[in-house]
Design a protein around this nucleic acid. Structure first.
Lengths: 333, 333
DNA sequence: GTGAAAGCGCTAACAT
DNA sequence: ATGTTAGCGCTTTCAC
């Protein structure tokens, strides 16, 4: 790879001039002929500025990091796509840091050793000390899809509205016994979705019964276990609102094993839509969330923070829409 | 963030000594007391060597890149997990470069500007000139899950064996009319899988008919179109071997729309297993491929190349196994 | 046992 | 209109 020095020797001009030409330095006065010559040799030698040198000099890597629990989770791939698209549009690239298989909180190194200029954190288990460390690092960060008591740097979805929408859909279909398989209660998203469920019940003069809420992780396995518990311990509900797509998949699996017909015996609606929900049999009714936009806005927020040196306040990305498919049907006695 | 210089001032020793202590320089002779003092202040100040400076000095980023067509594709997430795991085990991190939404061949920049020390390329559309550019860059690269006529740096799966296994399964179930929805014929994986299909037919004294092969992209939409074409133009087969999981999903969708029962009317087997195949109704019979191992080996190969300065030859990762589920059944008249 | 010096490739402020 | 200089933070070779 050619260096600035090499180019300068060929063109017969000082390296710094080349640098200024390539970086569009407006204050630079230069003859058109030399500029041409420079640009031509740069092109001929296929010159590419050395990123490592540039980074060191400018104290900037033009990389953003995104910390996610698991790269295989379809919810995150949509967030990533949004984040990546916005990052690229601004000359940044996105380093995806998947936490499965890593030591806890190891992601802090990304910031501490200047690997990235800013960090999106889409991980729900964030301890207070971690936030403190992040803040002391002076690098911008934003908590994506979750809140934390000790930080205002967050971007979330309107999970409450989504939970309400899901529950209202089941109510409109005439269901009286609606069970909610919630996410883990330490996650703000789970709390909000549960809250939406409660509000919908309340506004329709339904009693909220805590026995109708089963807590689960946001995983297939955990959703499966939750559904088995519902089947074992309770009188069967006629409808289920699963707080997450993976939970819904797990619940479907359990129902299939127990030969519970969907939607004949039980209707089910899941939160988050993904590319295969329409292919399931029955196809799954879902609440679609603006995950791409969540990623986009999170990056916007970080970039603004990088420029302004001050964090933007917490933000909610609205927009949750019902996608009615086959897994929910009218309640019939 | 503290720098070496700052530490050195506190400890009262030259920066270079600190560097040598931290990098375990065996030739360094130093008093135990000063070493202790150094390590202690390093810890107290939470010192982290500046990655950008280190990169420049050592001409090395300790990053590997992986170029994939689409981050949402479950096939790639397993490869990524394997690659990441092996990279991390060797002190490298993995930069995921998803090509959706990017200019073609833009990934070359990753290498040219020294962003990464080596590149895994899991993209099927690789032109000859790109290979040339890669080779002229002198950085290690490996083509993952695909071959290319002009390079020996590849790691592939045993796609032929997988295609054979899938087809044999259908033959054993008594099917006579087996249609193959193949991948795009410019992809080596598609050619190999088709070859496996042919071999299985041949060894069982079945005629190979080109009319029984429909070409598709490795996407849901394309698989859907391919299946619709089969339904429209041909006498229906009794079994289908889909060259890829997404193709299988698309085919399932088309069959569902046309009220074709699986496996009652048509049996279907897909290549690649993923987390939700068992949850589909009917659950999908698949050929599971060692994708994680593919990722692991690809990184091993790159790292060896970085050390030895010479590429390892092409390699096939064996291991394709049938996972029998509900979507395939015995042929009954 | 420790220090000094050089330099990776680039950019930015200041000279000429 | 172009050149000079300094320095980002680190590692490495050599000197004492």
């Amino acid at each position: 790879m050619a260096t600035l020095k090499e180019i300068s020797q060929i063109v017969g001009v000082h390296p710094s001039v080349i640098s200024r030409v390539l970086n569009d330095d407006q204050t630079l006065k230069i003859k058109d002929s030399t500029r041409k010559k420079i640009l031509q040799t740069v092109k001929e030698l296929n010159y590419q500025p050395n990123r490592m040198a540039r980074n060191l000099k400018m104290n900037k890597t033009n990389m953003l990091g995104i910390v996610i629990p698991d790269i295989g989770n379809p919810v995150y791939s949509d967030i990533i796509k949004g984040a990546e698209s916005e990052a690229n549009a601004n000359g940044y690239s996105l380093l995806i840091y998947s936490e499965h298989n890593k030591k806890k909180n190891e992601f802090l190194k990304l910031i501490k050793d200047n690997h990235v200029d800013g960090l999106l954190i889409a991980s729900h288990e964030l301890e207070h000390e971690i936030i403190l460390e992040l803040e002391s690092s002076k690098k911008p960060f934003v908590i994506v899809n979750g809140k934390h008591s000790s930080s205002d740097n967050y971007v979330v979805l309107d999970d409450k509205a989504a939970g309400k929408l899901a529950t209202e859909h089941l109510i409109e279909l005439g269901h009286k016994h609606i069970t909610h398989i919630s996410g883990p209660i330490y996650a703000d998203s789970a709390i909000q979705r549960l809250q939406g469920y409660r509000e919908a019940l309340h506004q329709n003069n339904y009693d909220f019964k805590s026995a109708n809420v089963i807590e689960s992780q946001y995983t297939i396995d955990s959703g499966y276990e939750a559904m088995k518990e519902i089947i074992k311990n309770h009188t069967l509900p006629t409808a289920i609102f699963a707080a997450n797509i993976l939970i819904a998949l797990g619940a479907l699996k359990a129902m299939k094993e127990h030969e519970i017909k969907v939607p004949g015996d039980i209707s089910i609606i899941g939160l988050h839509d993904t590319y295969f929900t329409s292919i399931l049999s029955p196809s799954l009714t879902t609440i679609q969330m603006p995950l791409f936009e969540l990623g986009v806005y999170s990056v916007k927020s970080i970039l603004q923070n990088i420029e302004d040196k001050q964090a933007s306040p917490g933000k909610i990305i609205h927009g949750a829409s019902l996608i009615k498919r086959e897994s929910t049907a009218e309640f019939k006695i």
